[in-house]
């Protein structure tokens, strides 16, 4: 059985590998699909519902989150149909009610012509619960943060609402947050995040802080023993290697 499939996307023919995620196929074909919770380095969760598209397998047509939908057979995909637009605008209406002063959400709302709805009065919040931070932390192998409570009270927090013991201060959670809701402070050789303080490691060549002491301690504990070089930041290390290679050939 061939692993190549042909999909019909908005009247164009697009090829895909069997099992490939629909969102990846659409992106490759240059189709614009809005997303918030999706991140190329992390496994999808489908929590923001913005990437909804309409797929028709021949038997029936349905709305699916394209970030979680593996292409398993011939499909007709509509990314701009009235049904898709209605669903997407509904999601954006709700998002706009809660995150009205977040630039990213405002821009998305404007692009899809969504206006604030007077009767929807939501408490403003700075977290989308897209779980990018939780997934990034788990992917690093730390799992220092997770969601706690449920329903309206659900939020991302370190365990026991204390400074997290498993955190190494890598800052990956803040890096992937689409709304910049996770606060990181740096100063006087320290990084502060989630209520904990970490010691910054400076590059011996350029002097820039590029990691935390705790990150190196964590890496050294990983089997098999990773060769951990603390002295140089990634940029200076590449430069150093390049110089060594050019030095050895001349």
């Amino acid at each position: 059985m061939s692993t190549k499939l042909e999909l019909k996307v908005n009247d164009n023919v697009v090829t895909a590998e069997r099992g490939e995620l629909l969102l990846d196929v659409l992106r490759r074909a240059g189709v614009l699909v809005p997303t918030l919770c999706e991140h190329p380095g992390l496994e999808g969760v489908g929590s923001c519902r913005l990437c909804l598209v309409e797929v028709n397998t021949g038997r029936r047509s349905q709305l699916v989150a394209s970030c979680l939908y593996p292409v398993e057979g011939e499909l007709t995909v509509l990314t701009d149909s009235p049904r898709v637009n209605e669903a997407r605008r509904f999601v954006l209406t709700l998002l706009l009610a809660r995150y009205s002063d977040v630039q990213l959400i405002e821009e998305l709302a404007r692009r899809y012509g969504v206006k604030p709805v007077e009767r929807l009065q939501a408490e403003p919040a700075d977290c989308l619960l897209c779980l990018r931070c939780v997934r990034a932390c788990a992917a690093q192998g730390n799992g220092a943060i997770a969601t706690c409570l449920r329903g309206r009270e659900k939020r991302v927090s370190p365990p026991f609402d204390e400074p997290p013991a498993d955190c190494v201060g890598c800052g990956a959670c803040a890096e992937v947050c689409p709304l910049g809701a996770i606060k990181v402070e740096e100063g006087e050789g320290k990084r502060r995040i989630w209520g904990r303080e970490f010691t910054l490691v400076h590059c011996q060549s350029c002097g820039e802080p590029f990691a935390t002491r705790e990150q190196f301690d964590y890496l050294r504990k990983q089997p098999p023993d990773l060769l951990v070089e603390e002295e140089l930041c990634p940029r200076c290390r590449k430069l150093d290697q390049a110089l060594r290679i050019s030095g050895s050939t001349t």
């Binding site: 220092a144 943060i145 706690c148 409570l149 449920r150 365990p159 026991f160 997290p164 498993d166």
Partner: peptide, 12 residues
């Protein structure tokens, strides 16, 4: 299991 996971279940 990460402590965060235990706390997540305990509060859920």
């Amino acid at each position: 299991v990460p402590e965060s996971q235990v706390y997540a279940v305990a509060t859920f």
